[in-house]
Computed example of a mutant assay.
Amino acid sequence: MGGEGGLGTTGPRRARGMTRAAAFDLVVLLALCALFAASLCLGSVDTAPAEVARILAAGPADTGTASQVIWQIRLPRAVEALLLGGGLSLSGFLLQTFFANPIADPFVLGISSGAKLVVAVVMIVVLGAGQVMSPAASVGSAFAGSLATMGLVLLISRRVRTQSMLIVAGVMVGYICSAATNFLVAFADDQSIVNLDNWSRGSFSGATWGDVAIVAVAVLAMTAAVFALSKPLGAFQLGEPHAQSVGVNVTGLRMLIVAVSSLLSACVAAFAGPVSFVGIAAPHLARRGVGSSRPILVTPACFLTGAAFCCGCDLLARTLFSPVELSVSAVTAVFGAPVVIALMLRGRVPR
């Protein structure tokens, strides 16, 4: 009787969970739409919403100044911030699931620093002065650095016994990569130093439609992969023995998590530079909002939350002290760090 009662309550509880998740997704989606619209309207010269709507309806063929600003500067930047924010949030969610640690993300584990090191090697040593890295070279370099650093952290994780020590190891790996990058910079020419410094500040400025196309293909494909992995990820969250008992290929799943999270973080590093705290804060907010850690519910919430978070921070970074533009990482840290601290003080994230 007790077993039947337990089974009988599973359906309604799951339905309530899905309703709460759908409501949270809708609220975040509306906030994202509002922030996206504000990104198109606000800038060094504000544009009325009705004028923006007219420009978008007219298409990119309009040669007017306002049309060029919207179509060639603000719109690709807003789309890139949306996609990369969602991708970075999903990368953080995957790493937190992989390491069973709520503060794991590409920035904390040194993965962003590793990507920066390899980008610096290619930019300073391989290409040298007067050469500009192509988007493909940026993505390839950042992905190689992310994957190599992730592999090093995984090797360390086999030797340490606690998650706190693993985080410390990741931070130390980040320091080593940063030190090596600074060593390279000491012997670089002025132009390479400027290029690397601009890249490492973290910014969505300078986005082009070519960049957006590459980002869209990579991020949307990886997002679809995370959705496809929802069921085995849910089993993995309950422990490797449980995952194996229900037929999950744990070794293959671990490799997929590493590859997908590394590619997502590499896309962000390549096109926006290191962006901090989004990968930690957004998954926490998503889990809290949906009241669950089930991947099938958290994945869309994570993407939307990360997208809205980055769109909002990018809007503040370029308008708060206009015409001076702030580093987007500075703004994400200002808002992301208090969010993480507040959520941790309130209690554990629901599972």
Score class of each variant (00 low, 15 high):
4 E>W: 02
5 G>R: 12
7 L>F: 15
8 G>H: 08
9 T>E: 13
10 T>Q: 12
10 T>G: 03
11 G>D: 11
13 R>E: 07
16 R>Q: 05
24 F>C: 08
25 D>L: 13
27 V>M: 13
29 L>W: 00
30 L>W: 07
34 A>I: 10
36 F>D: 09
37 A>D: 05
38 A>C: 07
44 S>A: 14
45 V>C: 03
47 T>K: 09
52 V>Q: 09
55 I>S: 01
57 A>F: 04
60 P>F: 02
60 P>A: 13
62 D>N: 02
65 T>W: 04
71 W>V: 07
73 I>S: 05
77 R>Q: 06
79 V>A: 03
79 V>F: 01
80 E>Q: 15
91 S>P: 04
94 L>W: 01
98 F>I: 07
103 I>H: 02
103 I>K: 03
108 V>L: 11
113 S>Q: 09
119 V>N: 06
125 V>D: 10
126 V>A: 15
128 G>P: 05
129 A>V: 10
129 A>W: 01
129 A>N: 08
131 Q>M: 14
140 G>W: 04
141 S>W: 01
143 F>K: 00
145 G>F: 04
147 L>Q: 10
150 M>N: 06
152 L>W: 09
153 V>H: 03
154 L>P: 04
156 I>D: 01
156 I>H: 03
159 R>F: 15
161 R>W: 14
161 R>D: 12
162 T>S: 15
163 Q>L: 14
168 V>W: 03
178 S>V: 14
180 A>H: 05
180 A>M: 15
180 A>V: 13
185 V>I: 12
186 A>M: 15
186 A>V: 14
194 V>D: 10
196 L>S: 03
201 R>E: 09
202 G>N: 03
209 W>C: 06
211 D>R: 02
222 M>H: 03
228 A>P: 04
233 L>R: 01
236 F>N: 02
238 L>T: 07
239 G>C: 13
241 P>K: 12
242 H>N: 11
245 S>T: 07
246 V>Q: 10
247 G>K: 12
247 G>D: 12
248 V>N: 06
251 T>P: 01
254 R>W: 02
256 L>Y: 00
257 I>C: 01
258 V>T: 13
263 L>K: 04
264 L>T: 05
270 A>V: 09
275 V>D: 00
278 V>E: 14
280 I>V: 15
281 A>Y: 05
284 H>L: 14
288 R>A: 15
288 R>L: 15
291 G>Y: 05
292 S>H: 06
293 S>E: 07
297 L>V: 00
297 L>K: 05
300 P>C: 11
301 A>W: 03
305 T>M: 09
307 A>Y: 07
309 F>Q: 08
310 C>D: 06
311 C>K: 01
313 C>S: 15
314 D>N: 14
315 L>R: 02
318 R>A: 02
321 F>Y: 12
329 S>A: 13
338 P>G: 02
344 M>H: 07
345 L>I: 13
345 L>F: 13
348 R>Y: 02
351 R>L: 08
